[in-house]
């Protein structure tokens, strides 16, 4: 497969704005910035309606931004759309395959439209069917495929000419866990092959697993950016989880540890989570006060925040502002 040379910073977006014609005020993108290094996976993480699809559609030239600059593989998405399209693959939010024809026919069709000769398109289709474990279903109409199979076919259709840059919009939304793992491993394989991937997701777990860097999108703007670890370190304190044996103890423990917490406590059933700044000191203080109150916890653990908590933190800040 030939590779087209791409610059170090494969995707660049700065101050991109997009307001849909006839759409709600503020929906879309409101000064979106992004920078993606070659050969990395960047996760664009955000809740429903944050603007993930809008961003992907703009970067893949399907949608024109109102203002701002965006380049992909060194080409301007607005003025050099053709060059951009030659270098990208797009896996949209909803599987975009022709459902009437078979999986193989889909891949041959898109191969031909990528200007492969017929024999080359057929060969490539077979390779991709094999790679995405679709060989057995190759000659069935795509309408008969399961959600996961359709997603894989969609992914395969986007990889016919091994694009240097791949956009994947919510690849696993609506998939069952097994299909999700299949898609994850397909994406990981791609990255090993050197493709730069921009992946959008609503799942923190997914971003944490697949992405080298994460940009958190909220209301059309990136509100935080960094490696998963950086984000966790920068946002919110570590947590001390105290798991109790008796539900009756929960209010007492709350009252006891409240003064020791560096922020708001969170209670989930039998678990009391305490935000901490000084890790060991708080651990000792909490253990001591529990001992003095004669409460025997089932477990005490010190941990870093999960991405879920990071996200809640950001959202809460936004609401407060």
């Amino acid at each position: 497969m030939q590779r087209v040379e791409v610059p170090e910073r494969v995707i660049l977006a700065s101050e991109v704005r997009k307001n849909y014609v006839g759409g709600t005020e503020g929906a879309g993108l409101n000064g979106f910035d992004l920078e993606v290094q070659a050969g990395t996976v960047v996760g664009l993480l955000g809740p429903n309606g944050a603007g993930k699809t809008t961003a992907v559609r703009i970067l893949s030239t399907l949608l024109a931004p109102d203002s701002g600059e965006a380049t992909v593989a060194g080409y301007d998405v607005r003025r050099q759309g053709g060059e951009v399209r030659r270098r990208i693959g797009l896996v949209g939010q909803y599987a975009a395959v022709d459902e009437i024809i078979t999986g193989r026919q889909n891949l041959v069709l898109f191969g031909r439209l990528n200007h492969l000769s017929r024999p080359a398109a057929v060969r490539r289709a077979d390779e991709l069917l094999e790679r995405f474990a679709l060989t057995a279903a190759a000659d069935q109409a795509a309408a008969k495929y399961s959600g996961g199979m359709r997603r894989r076919l969609d992914l395969a259709a986007s990889l016919i000419v091994a694009p240097p840059v791949l956009f994947v919009d919510e690849p696993t939304t609506g998939l069952d866990p097994a299909a999700r793992i299949e898609v994850w491993s397909a994406v990981r394989d791609l990255v090993d092959g050197g493709t730069t991937v921009l992946l959008t997701t609503q799942y923190l777990e997914e971003a944490d697993r697949l992405a080298d860097r994460i940009s958190m999108l909220k209301a059309g703007k990136v509100v935080a950016e960094g490696t998963p670890d950086e984000l966790k370190a920068a946002l919110g304190a570590d947590w001390l989880d105290v798991v109790l044996l008796d539900p009756a103890d929960v209010p007492r423990v709350r009252a006891l540890v409240e003064p020791l917490a560096a922020g708001e406590l969170r209670v989930d059933d039998l678990r009391v989570s305490i935000p901490v700044r000084d890790r060991t000191r708080t651990l000792v203080d909490v253990a001591t006060s529990l001992r003095e109150a004669m409460i025997e916890p089932e477990d005490i653990t010190l941990r870093r925040p999960t991405l879920d908590e990071v996200f809640l933190h950001l959202t809460a800040e936004e609401v407060a502002a």
Binding site: L62, R85, R86, I88, L90, A96, D98, E99, N114, H115
Partner: peptide
């Protein structure tokens, strides 16, 4: 509706 139009539009054709 099936996204096929978008797929065509993202191809170098």
């Amino acid at each position: 509706a099936k996204g096929v139009t978008d797929r065509f539009r993202s191809l170098p054709i």
